[in-house]
């Protein structure tokens, strides 16, 4: 019974890691393929945020399986640290994207329209 639960947990961890890597790869391909600065930020701002959060959440689940209750306090606090990291990424990544985009727009970088040449 315990073995079954452990197997299911590990499968879920691997699924989270795979989904995260897929979204991060999609974001990186978008960073290369899309035509201009603004549309590239669409790819990085969304796909990277969710990809990173999925990977860190998968590792958090793995930590529950990995460390036994007898470990030190600093080791047992690691899931809380990872949760804080997830919240911070959700807050900080869109803000950084918005800051770069606002700077570019206010200094007069022209957005790409349909039919223009690639930049």
């Amino acid at each position: 019974m315990v073995e079954l639960i452990v197997t299911i947990l590990l499968v879920v961890v691997v699924l989270f890691l795979a989904a995260g890597v897929f979204f991060m790869l999609a974001g990186a391909i978008g960073l290369l393929r899309l035509p201009d600065f603004y549309t590239r930020l669409h790819a990085t701002g969304k796909c990277d945020t969710l990809g990173e959060v999925l990977i860190i959440f998968g590792l958090l689940l793995y930590h529950i399986y990995y460390y036994s209750p007898g470990a030190e306090l600093s080791v047992q606090l690691v899931p809380v640290k990872l949760l804080f990291l997830i919240c911070f990424i959700f807050f900080a990544n869109p803000t950084a994207t918005h800051a770069i985009m606002k700077a570019a727009y206010n200094t007069g970088v022209k957005p790409w329209k349909k039919g223009d040449r690639r930049m």
């Binding site: 897929f22 979204f23 999609a26 974001g27 978008g30 393929r33 035509p35 603004y38 549309t39 349909k114």
Partner: peptide, 16 residues
């Protein structure tokens, strides 16, 4: 976003 990026024709039409 993943659909738009991985689609061969890239169905995007940006506007502000």
């Amino acid at each position: 976003v993943a659909y738009r990026v991985l689609h061969p024709k890239m169905p995007i039409d940006p506007s502000i």
